[in-house]
Computed example of a mutant assay.
Amino acid sequence: MNLCILGAGAWGTAMAIYLTKRGHVVTLCPRRMDHALELSSERKNLDYLPQVEFPSDLQIGREVGPALMEADYVFFACPSHALRTTSETAAVHLSTSPRLKGALALCKGLEPKTNKYAHEVMSEALGDVKCGYLTGPSHALELAEGKPAAMCLAINSPEDQTKVLQEAISSSTLRIYRSEDQIGAAIGGTLKNVYAIAVGISDGLCLGDNARAALITRCLNEMIELGVHLGGKKDTFIGLSGVGDLIATCAGEWSRNRTFGQAIASGKTASEIIEAQNTVVEGYWATECFYEKSAKSGATAPVLDQVHRILYQGSDPRAAVIELMARDLKAEG
């Protein structure tokens, strides 16, 4: 297949390296021209994934139009807040991209202010192009290094076309499962970032392994309840795009959202942390989006509510722990 990846952060770069090694014709297209020139000359991504050299046949695109011209699928690896702009840029070139069958979001977040899911944003920009997700537990460096992983492919293409794509992406190091639940895949992949912040706060406060285990368990329960309430399917949340991604993001030392939570626990403010780094913490923006979605739908999400209070209202993390522990007792479930 001919594949185009728009966005050259760690995850977009890792996916480009993996798919090239899988035998596909891949063009990695950064947002900035100077970054494209650097990638072309260095043959590695010094800013986001310096440990792995590019395969010799990985192409670097300097413009979106030529990168899309022969593409069968386009992968959006930009931050969620930039997805609409990036999709609209791609849409300009649809008339000269006759082979394009679909678009997959690699980002895990909602659009700020509109609170729309990634597949909704892409569909609005790309019209009749089939849209969906490639999501699940996904540490960029491990994928690029060829370590074993499994992910979920959720796209609204005809089943036979989805199976062809599933087979094309799968390999001896990456197993792909299909799903028709785009909403569930979107929710699981985004909410896990919020809960990773919560776990990071717990770890930063040195609350211990018992607290961490209890918190992750209740976060999963909350993800399922809120996700089903918002239109996802329960089975999705006990799969790779739900509990799988939750475990990886809450436990991984590499997790931006978990380390963000740890920094919050140390006394830093969200704005201080965000201004000091060049990578996106999707969970920060997702917290506000899902807080608004939850409130509007009438759902109950106590962990989400407390993370929102800490990040957006300046609440003391230790006070949040006390409030969660003091909630009315109930049966588990």
Rank of each mutant, 00 (worst) to 15 (best):
H81Q: 15
E53V: 03
K113Y: 14
E111S: 11
R62H: 14
P98G: 12
A149I: 02
L100V: 11
R43L: 08
E63K: 07
R84V: 15
S95G: 15
T89R: 12
S97P: 13
N115L: 12
T114K: 09
S123D: 10
T96H: 10
E124S: 14
L106G: 02
P79A: 08
P137L: 03
M151C: 00
N115E: 12
E145D: 02
P137M: 03
V129M: 00
E70R: 06
P98N: 10
L126E: 10
L141Q: 05
P137A: 02
L94C: 13
A103M: 05
Y133T: 10
E70K: 05
P112K: 10
A140S: 11
N115K: 13
L106M: 09
I60H: 03
T86M: 15
L100C: 10
D72K: 05
L58R: 03
S138K: 01
Y48Q: 03
C107N: 14
T96S: 15
C131I: 13
Q59E: 12
Y133H: 09
L58M: 07
L100W: 02
L134M: 04
A150G: 06
L126T: 15
V129W: 03
V64R: 02
L141M: 07
E53H: 09
L49S: 03
H139S: 02
L94A: 14
D72T: 02
P66I: 10
M122S: 08
A90I: 11
D47L: 11
L94F: 05
L110F: 12
D47M: 10
L143A: 08
A144G: 07
A77H: 09
V129H: 01
P79Q: 12
A77T: 11
R99L: 02
E88A: 12
L49Q: 06
E42L: 15
N115R: 13
K147D: 05
C107D: 13
A71T: 06
T85K: 15
E70Y: 09
T85G: 15
E142H: 01
E88S: 12
A149V: 00
V121E: 06
L46M: 10
D47E: 11
C78P: 15
A150N: 01
G102I: 04
F54M: 12
M151R: 02
P137F: 01
K44G: 01
T86A: 15
P98I: 09
S80P: 15
E120D: 13
T89M: 14
A77R: 08
C152D: 04
Y73N: 01
T96Y: 04
G61A: 08
H93N: 14
L94P: 14
D72S: 00
S138P: 04
A67Q: 04
T96I: 13
T85S: 15
F75R: 04
A149S: 10
S56H: 09
L106W: 06
R84A: 15
G102F: 01
L49H: 06
N45G: 00
